[in-house]
Amino acid sequence: MSPLHPQVRHLVATLATRPPAAPWEVPITAYREAGERLAALAGPPDDGCAVTDLTIPVRRGSVDARRYRPPGQTVGPAVLYLHGGGFVRGSLDSHDRLCRALCVRGGLGVVAVAYRLAPENRFPAAHDDALDALRWVSEHAGELSIDVTALAVAGDSSGGMLAAATALATRSGGPPLKAQGLVCPALDATMSSGSVDRYHAGPILTREALAWSYDQYIPDTDDRRSARASPLFEENLADAPPAIIISAQIDPVADDARRYAAALAAAGVAVDTHEYAGMPHSFVLLTGMLEDGDHALTTFATGLAELLNSG
């Protein structure tokens, strides 16, 4: 196993003083509350953008959303952002610092979406919410001051799966996307990547926790082999939007990112990849303690901006 970065070792030692309970050992509400508390590890929020809460109608009701606007921007490129959390937890607040940084550092409008969570809402509920929200944002681009010709979808971890699946879905009648951004994406619900076993013990994400998360959202194993649930199973990636992919080396889903980047490139899709040595899953949410997390977040924001602002 490759060595952890010294800052990660310090983080792990700090967390070990109050080790979190396994998700299956506590009520789902307690697990979600514990995830919200981790937001403090992202450092102080960037106040350099305007923030407004929204409600977006979807096919089964509505979802909460949050809009971020760069200072002084009238109409510009934008990103629909889908948070991680294993489909079970995560919220607008848990990823608020990340979205603020994406907005300010990339000069991008951001619309973050709080899709429905499992196990109350199983597959394909979150997928449907993501696609419906993207369509709504595209249809209301004018009032949101968004350049509809410069729109991207992005997400981290489970949100990375939703972003990749949404980007593929838009090829057949959805809003045209200029880019997709994936951070530590979980792209194979069958967990066939070698990294799942190499880094089964984490830190941050373990094989057992990953398997539990898939059980909550996609309990039907046949569904897990569909390209919608596992974008790595998509045989035709032609015409997928250009991608920037940020990944961590010490991560059970590290090979998901590598495999998908290779598949996109083989299909002729432009892809920019950045794997951070010694970093764990979701390290971009730990920017208050990990310098590489902060660097990766800037790389992600500026990389998306370059794709969206390109001719």
Results as ranks from 00 to 15, higher is better:
residue 204 I to E: 02
residue 168 L to F: 03
residue 179 A to N: 04
residue 188 D to I: 06
residue 179 A to Y: 02
residue 216 Q to W: 07
residue 190 T to K: 04
residue 183 V to E: 01
residue 205 L to A: 05
residue 221 T to A: 14
residue 183 V to W: 05
residue 200 H to N: 04
residue 193 S to H: 00
residue 216 Q to G: 07
residue 174 G to A: 09
residue 178 K to E: 04
residue 199 Y to S: 02
residue 198 R to V: 11
residue 169 A to H: 05
residue 199 Y to V: 11
residue 197 D to A: 14
residue 211 A to T: 14
residue 230 S to P: 02
residue 213 S to L: 00
residue 197 D to K: 07
residue 224 R to P: 08
residue 210 L to E: 05
residue 195 S to F: 03
residue 224 R to E: 14
residue 196 V to G: 01
residue 186 A to F: 04
residue 187 L to M: 09
residue 226 S to R: 14
residue 197 D to G: 05
residue 226 S to L: 14
residue 210 L to N: 06
residue 199 Y to P: 03
residue 230 S to E: 09
residue 208 E to L: 09
residue 181 G to W: 04
residue 188 D to H: 02
residue 208 E to T: 14
residue 172 S to A: 14
residue 172 S to N: 11
residue 199 Y to I: 11
residue 216 Q to C: 15
residue 217 Y to F: 15
residue 179 A to P: 07
residue 180 Q to T: 09
residue 172 S to G: 00
residue 178 K to D: 02
residue 227 A to T: 13
residue 191 M to L: 15
residue 178 K to F: 06
residue 184 C to S: 13
residue 214 Y to G: 06
residue 207 R to E: 08
residue 195 S to I: 01
residue 180 Q to K: 08
residue 178 K to N: 08
residue 225 R to F: 11
residue 167 A to D: 06
residue 203 P to E: 06
residue 221 T to M: 04
residue 165 A to T: 08
residue 214 Y to V: 08
residue 167 A to H: 04
residue 221 T to V: 15
residue 199 Y to W: 12
residue 192 S to E: 12
residue 189 A to H: 04
residue 230 S to F: 10
residue 201 A to V: 13
residue 175 P to F: 09
residue 175 P to E: 01
residue 204 I to K: 00
residue 168 L to M: 07
residue 184 C to T: 15
residue 217 Y to S: 08
residue 195 S to N: 03
residue 223 D to A: 14
residue 207 R to L: 02
residue 180 Q to W: 04
residue 202 G to T: 10
residue 189 A to V: 07
residue 218 I to A: 13
residue 200 H to L: 10
residue 199 Y to L: 08
residue 186 A to S: 14
residue 224 R to G: 09
residue 195 S to G: 08
residue 177 L to E: 00
residue 211 A to M: 11
residue 179 A to C: 02
residue 190 T to R: 10
residue 194 G to V: 01
residue 199 Y to K: 07
residue 226 S to P: 02
residue 223 D to M: 09
residue 192 S to Y: 05
residue 212 W to L: 11
residue 224 R to K: 12
residue 219 P to H: 06
residue 165 A to E: 03
residue 180 Q to R: 01
residue 214 Y to R: 04
residue 224 R to A: 10
residue 212 W to F: 12
residue 203 P to L: 02
residue 187 L to Y: 01
residue 173 G to N: 04
residue 182 L to H: 03
residue 209 A to F: 01
residue 216 Q to K: 13
residue 205 L to G: 06
residue 221 T to K: 14
residue 216 Q to T: 01
residue 171 R to S: 02
residue 179 A to V: 00
residue 165 A to K: 08
residue 213 S to A: 15
residue 199 Y to E: 02
residue 177 L to R: 01
residue 184 C to G: 09
residue 199 Y to F: 15
residue 222 D to C: 11
residue 228 R to G: 00
residue 226 S to W: 04
residue 184 C to I: 06
residue 198 R to Q: 13
residue 169 A to V: 06
residue 186 A to M: 13
residue 222 D to N: 13
residue 220 D to Q: 08
residue 178 K to H: 09
residue 229 A to M: 05
residue 186 A to V: 15
residue 207 R to A: 09
residue 173 G to Q: 04
residue 200 H to M: 12
residue 213 S to H: 11
residue 212 W to I: 09
residue 222 D to L: 15
residue 192 S to R: 12
residue 191 M to E: 15
residue 202 G to F: 05
residue 194 G to P: 03
residue 228 R to M: 14
residue 191 M to W: 05
residue 210 L to G: 01
